[in-house]
């Protein structure tokens, strides 16, 4: 995360705690920064993701993607995704360098042509692989990508949560607002409502089966996204989470993208 914001947080936090009452915006940002702080230091991770797309009639289609991530200090994370199915895109690989404030750098490897294509990262609101997840829903969530407002504390499915609103601070978002239920113990979201550009409720995302890794980092093993307009839904499941893989920048460059399998 951004060093300046961290410093600002360190300087301002004692003030909040002692004399003055926080505004809802300050409290929202404090919660987001605490969540970010608690999820810092994982260094690298990999996981196998399965995506189940369901149309209005309930017909299912599956996709399988392997993910690798590298934590980058002072900037967004680097990630590589390798597609295993559907079979016609098998071997296609996607490399992304996320940035907090400037646009992400993204490359796609097309195995049939052996071609690496730099692609525009402006397509944030578009569907990822035909699913109900937009690109912006699955990229690394840096604190600076949103502004925040705490709304209330609430019990959600038996868990104590903060209810936060967050407003995309980056361009080209498909959303005006997201409402997140953040678990007070894990500092991880349990549910997010997404509001479209007209301000209407568009999608709801719920997180299931959180497990703790390295005694510190919480990861869900399933996410459910439901589109209220189209009635289509997408399930993401994760398996084989692994940390401390010893990844370096070399595992996330264009050379490694070309031979990703």
């Amino acid at each position: 995360m951004n060093i300046r914001i961290l410093l600002a947080a360190l300087l301002t936090l004692p003030l909040f705690n002692s004399a003055f009452a926080e505004t809802p915006e300050e409290k929202g940002l404090t919660i987001a920064m605490e969540a970010d702080k608690r999820d810092t230091g994982w260094k690298d991770q990999k996981s196998d993701m399965k995506m189940i797309l369901r149309n209005r009639q309930g017909q299912e289609t599956q996709r399988q993607i392997r993910n690798k991530q590298l934590e980058v200090k002072g900037d967004g994370d680097k990630s590589m995704s390798i597609f295993d199915s559907p079979a016609d895109v098998k071997g296609t690989a996607f490399l992304s360098y996320t940035h907090a404030t400037k646009p992400d750098d993204q490359w796609l490897f097309l195995p049939a042509l052996k071609r690496v294509k730099r692609i525009s990262s402006n397509n944030k609101s578009g569907p990822f692989m035909g699913s109900e997840f937009a690109y912006e829903d699955i990229t690394s969530q840096e604190v600076e990508k949103y502004t925040y407002k705490w709304i209330k504390d609430e019990t959600y499915e038996g868990r104590e949560t903060f209810v936060l609103e967050r407003y995309p601070a980056y361009k080209h978002s498909g959303y005006t607002k997201q409402v997140a239920w953040v678990d007070k113990e894990m500092y991880q979201p349990l549910k997010v409502d997404f509001y479209d550009r007209k301000g209407d409720l568009l999608k709801t995302l719920t997180y299931h089966g959180y497990k703790q890794y390295l005694d510190k980092f919480w990861r869900p093993d399933r996410m459910e996204m439901f589109n209220h307009i189209t009635k289509k839904s997408t399930t993401l499941t994760w398996e084989n989470y692994a940390f401390d893989n010893g990844f370096t920048d070399r595992d996330f460059d264009k050379n490694s993208l070309k031979r990703a399998r």
Partner: peptide
């Protein structure tokens, strides 16, 4: 030049 989400659809 890509027109993302052409006319508020999911098409590009």
């Amino acid at each position: 030049y890509t027109l993302v989400g052409l006319m508020e659809t999911q098409y590009d």
